[in-house]
Simulated assay, not measured.
Amino acid sequence: MPITQQQLLQILPNAGPRAGVFLPALNRAMLRFDITTAIRQGAFIAQVGHESGQLSRMSENLNYSADALANTWPGRYAEPSADGGYLKVNVKGRARNKPNDLALSLAGKPEQIANNVYASRLGNGSPSTGDGWKYRGRGLIQVTGKSNYIAAGVALQLDLRAEPELLEQPEWAAMSAAHFWNARGLNDLADDGAFQDIGSVINTGQRGKVANGQADRQALYEKALRVLA
């Protein structure tokens, strides 16, 4: 059953006027990929709501500080310690990983960060190809990497290899998210009530972990179930 604009705003109040823009696209995407029961729709809207900042972000923000790089991807950007861990520094009263020289050189340069962190994986080429930036996360559940763009493009009959920016448009942002959901069997997890595992698959690629922002995801899910009941 399609959701209404009033329901969407009750779940994602910070979406404001964007709710009306995205609503038709969300309903078409959910219908196409069988996200059609209250529990499936509640889980889907909660997850895309969290991932997109309540429909406000359609592309990945890679404007990281050196400190953020060292703590998000320590294996690449933190200074190793003799005991096999990472050297620590005190940042606002908290122990944080010490950035290495690469992190310091990349800090505040989103395009260079993308080309470095996503290089030679997810179907991307080396940093010099620019694939990391070209195929950075886009859409309501961020499609990331050339191979994932190509797979989504085949499913949606779009040339996302040539036009990755299409995933920033409401129609394809929603449709690509629903395709991701379907391709990874997330309707089944929703049916089983395994909401945390859904966030884990979206955030880490596998079940059994706690996704970043789990508390916000859970709060949106509980609200969505009440609204859609």
Rank of each mutant, 00 (worst) to 15 (best):
L158I: 05
R76D: 01
T129L: 13
G53Q: 09
N115G: 02
N97E: 01
S56L: 09
T36S: 14
G84V: 00
L23T: 01
A215T: 09
R184E: 11
A155V: 12
Q157S: 13
A211P: 01
L23E: 04
L55K: 03
L140V: 07
R18I: 01
A162H: 05
I39K: 14
E79N: 07
N187E: 06
A173W: 13
A15Y: 01
A152R: 02
D191H: 15
P164I: 02
S56D: 04
Q112T: 07
S147I: 15
Q157E: 15
S59N: 03
A155R: 11
P17V: 10
Q47G: 02
F195W: 11
N97W: 04
L62S: 07
S126I: 04
I3Y: 11
R226I: 08
A68Q: 04
R138T: 00
I35W: 03
L186E: 00
M30I: 01
Y221Q: 07
I202N: 06
Q5D: 15
A68S: 03
A183S: 15
R161M: 12
G213I: 09
N61Q: 10
K134S: 03
L104V: 14
T129F: 15
R57H: 09
N116T: 10
V227L: 12
L166C: 05
I3N: 11
D188N: 15
P99Y: 08
G205I: 04
R121P: 02
Q10W: 06
P24C: 11
K223M: 08
R138D: 00
D83G: 00
S105L: 12
V154C: 06
Q169G: 07
N124L: 13
K209C: 07
A38K: 12
L8K: 02
D34R: 11
V21T: 09
V91G: 01
D188C: 06
A38Y: 09
G49R: 03
G132H: 05
K98W: 04
I39T: 13
G84C: 02
Q41R: 15
G125K: 08
G20P: 06
I3T: 07
Q7E: 15
K223H: 02
L166H: 10
D67R: 15
R40T: 02
N115P: 02
G108W: 07
L31N: 14
K223R: 12
R226M: 09
S200G: 01
G193Y: 13
A224C: 14
G153Y: 04
S81L: 08
R161S: 10
Y118P: 00
S52Y: 04
G153I: 03
K92M: 12
Q214D: 05
V48N: 09
P110Y: 10
I35T: 04
A224L: 09
